[in-house]
Amino acid sequence: MTTAVRKKDKPKRIREAKSARINRSIGGTVVIFLFLALASIFMLLPIVYTVVTSLKPMNEIFLYPPRFWVQNPTLSNFSTMAELAGEMWVPFERYLFNSVIVAVLGTIIYIFIASMAAYPLAKRHTKGMSIYYSFVIIAIMFRPEVTQIPLYIIMAKLGLINSYAALICPVLAGTLGVFLMRQFMETVPDEIIESARIDGAGEFRIFFRMIMPMVKPAWLTLVIFTFQSLWSTVDTTYIYNESMKTLTTVLQQISSAGIARAGAGAAVALVLMIPPVVVFIISQSSVMETMAHSGMKG
């Protein structure tokens, strides 16, 4: 099946190049570009300001009149942060290790289980499935602030306190990924699944060899959401063992402890931003490379 998909890529590439010119005026494209450029400035300005602030020495942060740009850039905010992190009870590497394990392992597991659950929800048209699915959707809307105590009791009963599972399980139980995958699988035509079945393919083969490659943009996007939410988890409820804490938890404590000011806070924010941005760039550039499954339809 995969080879069949690949073979179809070539003619499609040519078609795409041609179809890009259909119904497009150059003037309109220029106007759109200028509009997006202006909007980009608005989106980026606070981020740039964070970067600039993290490079400001203390006296410039409280300069009057305030200046946007930094005069004498310094890395002192980053070294303050590193020093504070170095003084913690547990070596810094341990926090980083915890964060990476939780984020990577959790993301991989979630992509699998969410996609698997989404397949029958998308392609098995029974009443039971649609009732189950409506629960999946509305569960997204319940605010987590009031489920913390019941969740704590469940975690304690299952003996998960102070374990990686305590950090990963709530994310694995989230319904956003199932919702996203199900919505994309919905667009896969029933006919091609049907013809694969007639050819004798089992459900697992259909799922891994046909469905998953076709909804690649969806699960690559889900990688971003899942990694981001696992990485940014600040957990002081289920984890009190210092050596099990994540980097995000510890760095947030540093920046909110009052020792650090605007500069170190910005430095912490920037350091924490790096891994999600890297994951975003890798996965998003693969999204851009995937080809639409046009040849597959009908």
Binding site: F112, I113, A114, M116, A117, Y119, P120, L121, F135, V136, A139, T147, P150, L151, I154, L158, C169, P170, L172, A173, G174, T175, V178, E203, F207
Partner: peptide, 16 residues
Amino acid sequence: FLAPFTILFVIFTVLP
């Protein structure tokens, strides 16, 4: 297909 997610969903989302 449904079991792994459903178990987690019931324990850590529906019950709370």
